[in-house]
Amino acid sequence: MPLAASTPHDLAEVAASDAALRRFLHGLPGVDQVGAEARAAMLGTRSIKTSSKAFALDLAVRMVDLTTLEGQDTAGKVRALASKAMRPDPTDPACPPVAAVCVYPDLVTVAKETVRGSGVQVASVATAFPSGRASLEVKLADVRAAVASGADEVDMVIDRGAFLTGRYLQVFEEIEAVLAACSREDGSRAHLKVILETGELQTYDSVRRASWLAMLAGGDFIKTSTGKVSPAATLPVALVMLEAVRDFREATGRMVGVKPAGGIRTAKDAIKHLVVVNEVAGPDWLDPAWFRFGASSLLNDLLMQRTKQRTGRYSGPDYVTLD
């Protein structure tokens, strides 16, 4: 297949069989690693100052999925995090809330109680996060439990083993099944983010294919990483995924979001990502509905930079809340 983006009509056919799906994914244009990384690095040199920096910092705060995914998580920890999500900077009423808190399924109820009425969403990882190494039934049960507990968003992991051995249809059908499991009794459904775990996919060609696979299967968002594998989110990976959502919208008219997660710790990194969003996918994606940062420590750096913008003084860790 040439590099032409396929028409929606074609796309209806691509998952008809394993062979058709493989043909489609392997027909996507290749990604040259050096070129992609050079482009990301060049965009990383954009100088974002004054009013554009203030805009970017607030936007980045609004895009954060404030995350805790530790074995030692407790209800107390999650409550503290959720409080921070709603009022990241208690000293500044103008500081916007983050987009969501992201927790394990068993802590969804706690998170949901805390953020109720604030507009902050609760996202739950599921599908035997982070490895995904469980039977489909177990994964779906995991998803249903999260949704039943009130999760607004579900962050699933794909079966990287199946993907890397070329069993694309299996991955595709699993995403479809998870999507079905996101449905609620009232007919609505939790928003589905599909974690590709790009650090395990290794090549940008695989990242592009996995992105298309997840979008074709109906994912609302494609997300880089669990945060448990290094490297997690990198700027060139985000670039490749943003190209994918841009091309997917061109082909289908449907917009899919992107969430880099893990490894973005500084406001500077976050702003570089926003530049890539702006110049690669376009300003339509500069919205928490379409771009998120999966992060924990990032928020405090964003807050310190906001303070600097507001007061002209550099802040320190003692002036932001540690949760």
């Binding site: 100052k49 554009s52 459904r189 449907r254």
Partner: peptide, 20 residues
């Protein structure tokens, strides 16, 4: 915020301020 959300933006365009 499903996949069919409208394309209109609540935020202004990310316009880089001059960086001379």
């Amino acid at each position: 915020m499903g996949g069919t959300a409208p394309l209109d933006r609540t935020s202004p365009v990310f316009d880089y301020a001059p960086a001379p």
